[in-house]
Design a protein around this nucleic acid. Structure first.
Lengths: 186, 186
DNA sequence: CACTTTTATTGAACTAATTCAAGAAATTAC
DNA sequence: GTAATTTCTTGAATTAGTTCAATAAAAGTG
């Protein structure tokens, strides 16, 4: 999927509008293990992941990493709360594999919103997209770990298979050893 | 808190605008145990709870009730995903105590948005408010049950004390017996 | 390719949490 | 105010999940 195809899912942009969007995008690369976002910083860019996987999470008081989400290619990498409210994020976003990105400055996006109501609509639809995703996540969290695991594997992009099991265990809120045993029982 | 005070937290409305909002509100009452929203229906009203508590959740395949959220007075009762996208909700919203509400028709709200940019702004801010709440919820879900319980009690309105423990246990994803034992250890 | 490092599995001992059953406490109904 | 119902607690037996340690497997490096 190209980024244009991605945008066209939301709004019926014409070629000039797509060109305008593309002109704002800056290509970036980032290697496995590097930080895209570090807690404490304010998100002033919206990233579109064209290749790779990120993990979003935090480090708790006892020093262990808690993974809250995986971000696959063809979706946005951002702490949207921090981006919207321009307050420091509590999250880290770290590359799980080598990644390629398009970055959009927040200011450019805000200007787009003023310029053309179709961009405004895109912004709203992206917000709603995230909103729905969060609502689903809250529901999924109520399921037992085994079911959550099966749902995760069946509904995610195939790249899920390239994520180390111990990160998936963290996402599920169980120990890597237990995930290994759950997978064996089958 | 009155509903006007509530709205003024978000946008600096003048008296005429507040009067306009108030004119759209319809008073409703609902008794303990009754449904405000039933799964399968499309949310076409936004409710503001002026008194009481609701639970939001669903019934799983094994027939047990899963509570995903409590809705206290001075906040909105709605499945916002269903309301936004006009698709059937999977959730039930049920009164935990006798409740009083103000209801706003979705169509009236959409008309307000067109009429005056301040209402539009209110809509955006309410969405963002929910968004932030969901993001916090996802983070809280990653904490162990005991901490989640303590956080729930310390950050909720005092009405939390009037909710039966077995519903709180469901919200926390643990059995009522175990919650009872956790509370005893202290 | 051999070496190092990272990731995954397995088992044993332990802790967290559930289920079931019984009784106590609190609410509701008449 | 007493009976009926709902909610809460406690304990014993069981299951789910953790921790730690050891080993195996896989992936990255020169």
């Amino acid at each position: 999927m190209t980024i244009n195809e991605f945008f066209l899912q939301f709004v019926d942009f014409n070629e000039a509008e797509l060109a305008h969007l593309n002109a704002l995008a800056k290509h970036e690369q980032i290697k496995k293990g590097e930080y895209l976002i570090k807690h404490g910083q304010v998100c002033d860019k919206l990233y579109f992941v064209t290749k790779g996987i990120f993990k979003l999470g935090y480090t708790n008081e006892t020093g262990e990493e808690v993974v809250l989400d995986f971000i696959f290619q063809n979706s946005f990498a951002v702490d949207y709360v921090s981006f919207l409210l321009q307050r420091p994020t509590e999250m880290d976003i770290i590359a799980v594999k080598d990644c390629q990105l398009l970055s959009f400055e927040r200011k450019s996006i805000l200007m787009l919103y003023e310029e053309n109501i179709k961009f405004q609509k895109m912004g709203r639809l992206i917000s709603e997209f995230y909103f729905i995703r969060f609502a689903e996540r809250i529901k999924e969290n109520s399921l037992p770990p085994k079911e959550r695991y099966e749902k995760l594997v069946s509904t995610s992009c195939e790249l899920i298979l390239e994520i180390p099991q111990y990160l998936i265990a963290s996402y599920l809120g169980i120990s890597p050893e237990w995930l290994s045993k759950l997978r064996a029982k089958k």
